[in-house]
Amino acid sequence: MATVVTVTSGKGGVGKTTTSAAVAAGLAQLGHRTVVIDFDVGLRNLDLIMGVERRVVFDFVNVISGEATLNQALIQDKRLENLSVLAASQTKDKDALTEEGVGQVLGQLAEMGFEYIVCDSPAGIERGATMALYFADHAVIVTNPEVSSVRDSDRILGILQSKSKRAKEGGKVYEHLLITRYDPARVENGEMLSKDDVCDILAVKLIGVIPESKAVLKASNTGVPVILDENSDAGLAYGDAVCRFLGEDLPMRFVTPKKQGLFSRILGGGD
């Protein structure tokens, strides 16, 4: 039985694709056979973040419409043997994602022996997003500590609780909160919602706090999931989040302002 993990947020640009790449790579690193699927049909970007953009021949929609087999469309990651990527189509529109078609592809991936199917949801609450969350067993809600992102996350929680397959069958989707682009110094100054504020408001279990980090842009520039950058705060924070997702109990790191020592000030800090 494969576990479907949907990375979602409602609001755009909060870090879903960054998170999908990191979580999928993290699960694969820990030995789980994992596939990550881009549901952002028309605006694919996961391929770039994963560094496989030049290897995309067939995509998710080609598989749904029968123009290609899954084996033809799956791209095996060159760094992690347990990781594969299924790209989104750039030309088709989101109506190409039918419930039946998506369900069939997920079923086939499970049969192929994938343990985790990570779904990178597009922004919004339209077809691509609702399809990505319909089959979810687990949802990772990506939220920035900012009013509109928190509100949209709550709307997505409402949709998960009423429109997902699990909800319709009387069950529930496991919900995990991931706060990204967190700036502990601004939180300390009262300029940014704290992780506890966001948790109080949304009432979802927190699996990680990813700091605002230069490492994320560097990782996307080079097409390497940031979790593989073990010298970075964001990479380590994602690593912890994946462990918590799998049930481990770890203290939160990078949630208090960095004490800038004389040394790092002279050297200009190193993140």
Partner: peptide
């Protein structure tokens, strides 16, 4: 009152309202 506290208060009111409607 900090701006973060204002944000929290506004969100709590809004979200409890929206949840009730849902």
């Amino acid at each position: 009152k900090t701006s973060a506290a204002a944000a929290k208060e506004r969100l709590q009111i809004l979200i409890s309202h929206e949840r009730q409607n849902r």
